[in-house]
Amino acid sequence: MRVALFITCVNDTLFPGTGKAVVSLLRRLGCEVDFPAAQTCCGQMHVNTGYRDEGVRLARHFTEVFAGYDAVVAPSGSCAAMVREQYPKLVRPGSRGATAVAEVAPKVHELSEFLIDVLKVDDVGAYFPHRVTYHPTCHSLRGLHLGDRPTRLLQNVRGLELVELPAAQECCGFGGTFAVKNPAVSAAMGADKVRNVLGTGAEVLCAADNSCLMHIGGTLNRQRTGVRIMHLAEILAATEEAQ
């Protein structure tokens, strides 16, 4: 199967390792991966901060770049939710933009959705001998309704001990520009999330969104906790041979 990787601007710029992990994972599972070079950003930051015109331009760009692919995979619940849930609200019903969105949006999958729903695998043959806890990010949980897809994948990783995160469904406090517009509340939410993470005794905090992980991880680092953050793709890409 030929799939297009939508890396997302945050991963592209700050977390290239996640992109490399997606490529190696999908190839291991027999996919042909393409990276449309013209891709940039889904427009979520602009739309959600109140800059709809800029956001709509980016959305238009996205639908042009990814038109014609059978499947688009994004290692981000938040960006996938933006395309699938919010794009249809940005366009006028019956407009050309609406047609373009209706064409592309349903083909955009968050990574764990793509693995389980499209490729029909919940054991990707990974090996990761560590104690891991998983934070379901808000947009993957309540936007995409990923349910237990990510944890099913993690449970089937050889050597991995998955420990439950208390109050897992609570927002970490990132929220895009919320983190800088309401820093006090954002930090208080992050501190509570970190406390819960530390309580699990996990070595690694995993999630399907690097943006949230950047916020929680930034707090974990500032507190010198020693807990690492890892994107779901990076754990699923890890194999025994690679260790």
């Binding site: 700050l14 290239p16 983190a179 800088v180 930034g218």
Partner: peptide
């Protein structure tokens, strides 16, 4: 400035040596 709102309580992630798109360009294209 306003970005201190981030670094008051959190570390910044390290900026990588190379973006994903440059890595892809170099290795895959």
């Amino acid at each position: 400035g306003p970005l201190s709102a981030w670094t008051d309580t959190r570390d910044l992630p390290d900026i990588p040596e190379e973006s994903f798109r440059d890595w892809w360009e170099r290795n895959e294209r």
